[in-house]
Every structure is written in structure tokens, then in C-alpha cells.
């Protein structure tokens, strides 16, 4: 906030508040995060039960399980929801505890980037197993 002190007299009121308040997408973001969270519950239960069933299974058994169309589709959905939920959940934590604007923006961006990379790598793995064996 210290940076604002110097330009108090030169910037219009609108100029100073722009970008600091509601971007008119807050409620949408909030609702979609809750809906995705609700959808996450059955997906996760399916995955936990499946993984318990795969305990100690060898490579051939696990890849054969992943390659089944229903499992591959549900895994892709699980990957999407998991990394989206992780990125935005971490963003909420950062927004509460990191107060420097640059540090906050950087950490949120890095987390989103890392989640995107992991999501694409995971999804690609599922597709490779499903299509190329």
C-alpha cells in the first residue's frame, strides 16, 4: 500500500480502486468451485475403492484397469477436478496469508502452472495407456 502514497494526488478515485474490488465474477467462481467440489466426492470414493482393489497389483494388471474405457474417462475427470481444486484451494490459502501483491501473484501463478503441468502429464499417461497400451 505504500506505493499508493506517492500518487494519491495524481490519480483519479476510479484509477486507484480499479482492479482492487469485485471483477463481477466472484459469485460465479464461488458457485462453480462448490459444484465441482460436490462432483469430486463420488469421483474420489470411486477412486479410493478402485485403488484399494489394486493394492499390490503388478504393472500389467494396473494398466489393463486404466485402459478400460469407463476407468479411463473417470480418471481423466478425476485428474481435471483434482488439479483444478488444488490450484484454486491453494489460491484461497495464499490470499489469506501472503500480503505482498507481487509475491501473492507469483505464488498463485506458479501453483497454477505446476498444477497444469501435472494435470496434462497425468492425463497424457492415462491416454497413452488407453490407446497405446
Amino acid at each position: 500500500m505504500a506505493a499508493n502514497q506517492s500518487d494519491v494526488g495524481f490519480r483519479s478515485s476510479l484509477g486507484r480502486v480499479r482492479g482492487l474490488g469485485s471483477a463481477r465474477t466472484g459469485a460465479e467462481h464461488w458457485v462453480s468451485y462448490r459444484l465441482l467440489s460436490a462432483a469430486y466426492v463420488p469421483l474420489l470414493l470411486w477412486f479410493i475403492i478402485a485403488v484399494v482393489g489394486l493394492t499390490g497389483a503388478d504393472h500389467a494388471t494396473v494398466t489393463a484397469w486404466i485402459a478400460k474405457p469407463l476407468n479411463a474417462v473417470l480418471l481423466l475427470l478425476l485428474i481435471g477436478v483434482t488439479f483444478h481444486h488444488a490450484a484454486y484451494g491453494m489460491q484461497e490459502i495464499y490470499e489469506d496469508y501472503i500480503h505482498g501483491k507481487l509475491a501473492k501473484t507469483a505464488v498463485i501463478g506458479l501453483t497454477r502452472g505446476a498444477c497444469l503441468v501435472l494435470a496434462v502429464a497425468s492425463a497424457f499417461s492415462v491416454l497413452k495407456i488407453a490407446f497405446a497400451g
Binding site: 504393472h59 494398466t63 486404466i66 483434482t82 490459502i93 501435472l118 502429464a121 499417461s125 492415462v126 495407456i129
Partner: peptide, 29 residues
Amino acid sequence: RITGAGLTAGTLLFAWWLVAAATGAEAFD
């Protein structure tokens, strides 16, 4: 919050498991 942050770190394990399965039997083992 703590479990949420821990689970985010845990996604590395999930991704590693899938990538290793796609890589081959040796990586998966």
C-alpha cells in the same frame, strides 16, 4: 487447510504413479 495443502503436495505422488504406469513395468515397480 493443512490437509488441503498436504493433499496438493500429494498430487505429485498421484501424477508419479500414473506417469510411471505409462512409462513401463520397471518405472512402475
